[in-house]
Design a protein around this nucleic acid. Structure first.
Lengths: 191, 191
DNA sequence: GTGTGCATGTAATGAGTTACATGATTAC
DNA sequence: GTAATCATGTAACTCATTACATGCACAC
């Protein structure tokens, strides 16, 4: 019985504050909308919803729209204050665990060409992410035009996309630079 | 009884491959040298060392140098192949969990000024990291000059520092840009 | 009628951290 | 002598993922 420490609650309450939905839709929304900076595993969402319901922070509003039998969850007023409270809490620093950098650090053991493959993969991945962000920007623009999203929300959401773009471009530049560095490394040793 | 999945083993074998040392020194080395992209909790290191010893990948070479009673661990030949094997395994993608971006995404609930404080803190932190990397570069240069570190190792290690620098600069640029965006946000609403 | 996707959960497992517990050694 | 640091471990706990289990509804 895992005790949730608030992080999952923020994602759930926040997502529901944008729009009420079922647990299933919630999982998809978190994956699709918050996916580039947040993830929740499937088995977290329903238990968290139940906990939140017990605390009166969300309530079930069964089947207004959508299929019969599906329960749409919505945030209650106390749930909204809880969200604001959680958002105000200090950010706990993530413990870094970058598998790519760990491999490169011990690159002497891994070998030059394997390291270069890793760098190329990282660069391509970052490039793909960059392309994905363009699509998200376009999609958001249409939603704002249609009145589905407020401009204030758009501003905040764009900040997170921009963060992803900056990070991706930095990765690309670093990878290209590093590939050049390793290219030169051959100079002295092995045939 | 946690089953280790290889990630801790890479860090431990890798660090010991650079230089044999005690478990205690190992913990410090991982914190100080790999710290900007990797972390191991204290309670992981000793159990992992014992597992690795059982498998013959590391051995105890007691008290050649240093204090009496302290056991220096060193990598065995099979440990070295094990390290190479582990380094060659696919990188498991980290599940993103960025507390800062989660807060900014729901910035409408958190409030403009709180968001700006978070951004300023992130920028300052990135700036501090950038300064730290300079120090690491300088220190490494003296180690190479003293013959303690090979130039090949230096090349690989520098790649990881460079990654940190690129990421930090990207964070600074993004935070400054975002602060300007939020500055303008005031335009219409609240007094 | 049947497969695909919607919808809701539980159980087992694992990874990793924190806190606890203990003692030896060196610096002052 | 005593405080700080070196040194080695264990136990409990938390957080989170994966796999399992189940059933309905809608499109074809």
């Amino acid at each position: 019985m895992p005790r949730r420490k608030g992080r999952t609650e923020v994602a759930v309450l926040g997502a529901l504050s944008v729009s009420p939905m079922t647990g299933y839709a919630l999982r998809n929304a978190i994956r699709d909308v918050l996916g580039h900076f947040w993830s929740e595993s499937f088995g977290q969402i329903y238990p968290t919803l139940n906990t939140l319901e017990d605390q009166g922070h969300v309530s079930r509003a069964s089947s207004e729209a959508g299929r019969t039998g599906a329960t749409h969850f919505e945030v209650t007023p106390t749930g909204l204050s809880r969200l604001k409270e959680l958002l105000g809490e200090p950010i706990e620093p993530p413990r870094p665990r970058n598998g790519l950098l760990l491999r490169l650090f011990f690159g002497r053991h891994l070998g030059r060409s394997a390291c270069m493959s890793l760098l190329e993969a990282a660069r391509d991945e970052a490039q793909a992410r960059l392309t994905g962000f363009e699509a998200i920007r376009a999609e958001m623009a249409t939603e704002v035009a249609a009145g589905l999203t407020s401009e204030v929300d758009q501003t905040y959401w764009t900040l997170t996309i921009s963060a992803g773009e900056h990070a991706a471009r930095a990765t690309i530049a670093w990878a290209d630079e590093s590939l050049q560095t390793l290219q030169k490394l051959d100079g002295e040793a092995r045939p």
